[in-house]
Structure formats: C-alpha cells, structure tokens
Design a protein around this nucleic acid. Sequence first.
RNA 1: GCCCUGGUGGUGUAGGGGCUAUCAUGCGGGCCUGUCGAGCCCGCGACUCGGGUUCAAUUCCCGGCCAGGGCGCCA
Length: 432
Amino acid sequence: MLDRRYSKEIIPSLDGSQTILMGWVHEIRDLGGIIFILLRDREGIIQVTAPSKKTSKELFKKLRKLKKEYVIEVQGTVKKSPKAPRGVEIIPSNVKVLAESQQPLPLDPTGKVKAELDTRLDSRFLDLRRPEISAIFKIKSKMLHFVRVFLEKEGFIEINTPKLVASATEGGTELFPITYFEREAFLGQSPQLYKQMMMASGLDKVYEIAPIFRAEEHDTPRHLNEVISIDIEAAFMNHEDVMKILEKLIVKVIKDVKRHCKDELEILGRELETPKLPFERLEYEEVVEIVNSSGVHLKHGEDLSRAAEKALGETMPGYYFIKSWPTNIKPFYVMPKEDDPNKSYAFDLMYRDLEVSSGAMRVHEHDLLVERIKRQGLNPISFKSYLSAFKYGMPPHAGWGLGAERFTMALLDIKNIRETVLFPRDRRRLTP
RNA sequence: GCCCUGGUGGUGUAGGGGCUAUCAUGCGGGCCUGUCGAGCCCGCGACUCGGGUUCAAUUCCCGGCCAGGGCGCCA
C-alpha cells in the first residue's frame, strides 16, 4: 500500500512514480475530452489531469460526477509537465469518493467571490479551507510553540490554574457568573492571583498559556470576551528583568516564525521585520507630552484614550514600552515606587497603537498589599487565601501577561481580532 | 452602552413608491482534449423582521434584530 502524500510533496522529480493523495475537490474544469481537477489538502493544491484517451471510461464517468468540495482519494502517476501548474500533475488511475458535499456551498472556498467576516465565521470550517485563512492559524500555532520553547529555555515551568473561580471581588472588570452546584462561581478573568501565589511555592519562574474571560460589553476590533493569555511570573526579579524577558521573547518568536513559516507568510503577503533590542522605553510622563503635542488632549494621571493610543502609534512605529504608570490607574498588586508612590513599576508593551502586554513588579509585602486593596475600595477578606501566600515568605517578584491574539494581530498586521480566533466570542457571537 | 452607515438569490453586489428587480459568482443542463479567475449557450435562485403612511412599500417613517466603522467600558 502506498503512503499518502501531501500536494506540496509532489514535485517534478517524482515523474513516473505512483502516489496517493487525499483531499477536497477545489475546482473542476471539464473541457469535454480532458478533465482537470484541482485537489486541495492542508499543504496546498495539486492538479489531477484526466485526458479521455489515457483514462478508462469508467473512471472518466466517475470524475464527471464529482462536485466541488467532495472529499476524494486519488491514486495515480506523477507526471512532469510544463503545462501544469507548478510543473507537475497527477494522471489518475483510481479515484474514490470518501464524502460528498451539498451544493451550493455557504461560501466560496476558492475566494473568487468575497464573503463578509460574519458569513465566514458562521461557516468557519469552510472558511479555513482557504489557504490565507489557515495560514493565520498555522502561524498562531507556531508562535505559541516558540513561546513555550523560549520560556522553557529561560527556566520557566508551565502551570495550569483554575478557570472556575469563587471570587467576584477582585474589582474592575466584569466577570461571567456561572452555576457551581449550589453556589455561584465565575469564569477567571486572569491567572494573576494564582501565578503570584506560585511565587510563594518556590517554583520561582512559572508561565501559563490559557483562556481568560471578560464580561465587558466592549464591541471593537481589538476586544473579545474570551482570549488566550500568555502569562509569566518570576520571583527575585523586578519590572526591568521581566521587560527584558518580554522583549527577548518577542524578537525570538518573530525570528522563529520568519524562519519556520515562510510559506504561510508568503501566502499572507506579510514581510516581518525583526525589531531591534532593546525596545524603546517611554516614561508615562513622556507619553503624555507626546500625545498632547500631537494635538490630542490627555491629562496627567489619566489612562490612554483610544485617540491617545492612535496619536502615539503615529509617533512610535514598532514595539515600545510605556513605564512608570500612575499607581492609581493600575491594579492593587502593582508596586508603587518607593521614592514616589504616585508612580508605579507597571509597564505596558505596545505595538504601534495596540497594547499587547502589560506587567509590573508586584507588591510582595503583606501589609502594603492589604493597604493597596483597601485603597482600591476592595475588601481584604475576599482575598484571604491570596493574602495568606504573602505571610510565610513571599519573595519579591514581577510578571506580565501577553495577549496571544493581540500578538498575532501585530505579527500579521491583522485589523480585526476575530480573524485570529477560530471561533471568536464577542458581545453577540456565542456560536459556532 | 452611545454615534454613523448598512441589511436585495447560496455568496458578493446594482437599483428603487406601481414595470419580468441589475451584474458577477454559484447551482442544474448542454457543447468543448491543456484548463490554470477556462470559454460559449439555455435555465434556476433574492428585497432582515414587526408596525405605520399610502390605492399600492423591497423602496418612505418608527422600532427590533444583525453586521461594518468609530467611541466608551476593559482591577
């Protein structure tokens, strides 16, 4: 029995050899005396050519019955031919129909007729049959792989923290409530508290790549209610240490993606540039100046408005950090500066006008943490199990969270985050 | 949640108070031995939902739902 080959593996030098291919009928061009079938599989498209003279009547009849997107198995001979796309084609000796496809299709996998994003998401499995769509997810897969390889090499240990959580009292973002037997529970908005607790465990450096859930009613091309967060936390490190890890990771992953996803990047027409290290570090105060001098009003102490982000993005071309954020617009666990408690050791990593990551050196002193929780209008009692980790030897630590989808958008210059998720969850979409 | 724009065959579109509702692709049938956005001929298939105005609404008005863009929210 012959092994199955992918279309990409069929090259002119295999001329004369027998092969088996499995895939979908991408297009059929029936010219009467000769039938061309474009067979599509994960790796590409190969032409199956059946001239009536060289094809049995039985097989020719069978080929004529094929329709678009049928799943077929083709057994045949590789033939080198300058007339064929890529210089090679398959002369079939046998074709098996493995699955039929209803007509008409909900959208056109050849892409000749454009479909809107909404239509595409409704039939995502068909949408993924277009190479320029599957390329996004092949690259996202590699990106996550290279992130893991990098972090493991840096000595990080992968952990898994619960996504079913008890507390809704962390403040800030809205949580999705769920029924947990006779109690109410919530979907986790961030592994933040758990990964910090791990700093008291002696594991030193941990990371998690997992979904986070936010019940915000945001409705923008940059937000979803379920995304993948790449989180790290490292003991005995400060903000600058983890910023260095972050920028190193970004550069390494870009290099790896460039090297290992050449075909996909070409399909997407994306020329990736490797950023230079170190990334520029802007003080929050500098950012306020830049934004204001560009004509967009921004008060000292305020978070960036969308207009401010855009103004910044105009000035700053690639990846850059914003550091020394005002303490009171950042979460309770960020460490205020000792000499100026109104400023903090929090930072954001931006790509042009898009926030891709945020992190900080954390508060590791129990009493200060309690005070910070109170100052934010939250109740320390609801943080009892979290706080107890700070009582028995909590080392200084720092960490960050990097949005996997936002990073994918930056990598591939994608404008709508929905393009980077197989089955996105937004304000209205819950299916498929 | 707010503002703007829109919703017409399976898909993407044109149009518009009364006419056989445009075009492409698709789908069905026919012709064709080198297609590669194949070509040619015949046919099929649609006005988002609810209410209102009107002799008449797919078209105008109001509302819902949905989409795209912008913003807000996003410890």
